[in-house]
Design a protein around this nucleic acid. Sequence first.
DNA 1: GAGTCTCTGTCGGCCAGGCGACAGTCTTTT
DNA 2: AAAAGACTGTCGCCTGGCCGACAGAGACTC
Lengths: 220, 220
Amino acid sequence: MKFLEENLLDHLQRPEFAELHSVLISHSFPKGGYICQPGTGSNLVFIVVSGKVRVYLGYEEKEFNLGILTKGDIYSTHTGTFVQALTDAVVLMTDVKTFRRRMVGDPEVTKAMVRVLGNILKTSFTIIDGLAFRDVNSRLVALLANEARRHGLALQDGSVQIQIDLSIEQIARLIGSTRQTVSMLLNDLMRAGLIERPGRGTFLIPNLSVFESVGGVTRS
Amino acid sequence: MKFLEENLLDHLQRPEFAELHSVLISHSFPKGGYICQPGTGSNLVFIVVSGKVRVYLGYEEKEFNLGILTKGDIYSTHTGTFVQALTDAVVLMTDVKTFRRRMVGDPEVTKAMVRVLGNILKTSFTIIDGLAFRDVNSRLVALLANEARRHGLALQDGSVQIQIDLSIEQIARLIGSTRQTVSMLLNDLMRAGLIERPGRGTFLIPNLSVFESVGGVTRS
DNA sequence: GAGTCTCTGTCGGCCAGGCGACAGTCTTTT
DNA sequence: AAAAGACTGTCGCCTGGCCGACAGAGACTC
């Protein structure tokens, strides 16, 4: 679902959008700040100018990541999701009404929306799959494997090192489980030699493909 | 997320799309036929011309409805979802490559996509919520209440009648549970006087709002 | 009306995983 | 270095819900 070649922001720099800038108000958010939370009643559309923001579904105790928005991504606040700045971030905001009137007809804008929605949708399918079909262990393995594939550091001996600066409790939230269960599972994985934990927040996966295959087995 | 005023099909009837018709191939599907199933490797985009088609996530034993597409809706086959004709249906199909080249730049097309994706996304959030936070009973109540609100027949005495021509087994699938559990829960609801079952596939909810409130209580 | 099928209700066994509790360990502060 | 605080590992209990099994109950065929 990748359609965008040109960055949406560059596109909006063009002269024909000059008058639009008056209604696109720039807002800055510090790292960790919330761009939106469900239930605040605000109904805005925003475009990320700089920084990274994380979109997630959250409830009292659990939270499921839906995606990371970066420069040029566009999203709406009235979707029942949380949007939090992962780094200091700047966004352009406008209300939905103005957005519809002025911007919906623009293919670059809708293309950006399709891209973002498509990605989030894909992630949410994965989440549903995980919740409906996989046990906690599989979800944990999937989380680590994902992280390894995406941001892992491959070492000379073929192992992959990943840095997850999250407490066990936070990891548990991400996969919709509990501290105790995750703690136990991680130790099981270590005892089985599938992962090592050289230090806090750091994991070492000696053989990633073997590791991944373990997650798949426990399918019901 | 409703942006479309003009129907996409009318839009495509315009003269400037005349040459496009050669690549938009019309396909008919009988009621119950599959427009796409995951894993078939096909990578097509289609627009619904007539009929209703149902999009759902399915696995061996369970299936989760994501939405119903009708005239003018546009969707893609490589999303890992099943798409099944609920009635006899006609769709216009083309491959993704052509679609990107010829149609992605058109705001009506992308608007339709945003609308469809937005709806499906919303539904999938609801599913995640249900799976992660609600027990089977809540999901069952939600399903029935939803059906009642949407297609229910309000009787004079304030009760609502709904027609669900599904076996208990099929209902169980829709909420990701089992025949036995659903059978038990339905009987519990009947014993509690919250629903009645005058005949096969028919339910009667004497007081819908009371009924709905029961579903919410069991939140963890 | 007898046989066959499909659907429904109910029971008992079983287990993943949530939760409270508590001890041990690592960090930070003063 | 001592105290306070946060994080981690484990144990045991308990429950929701899956599963197999089996017995009615309608429906359909011959």
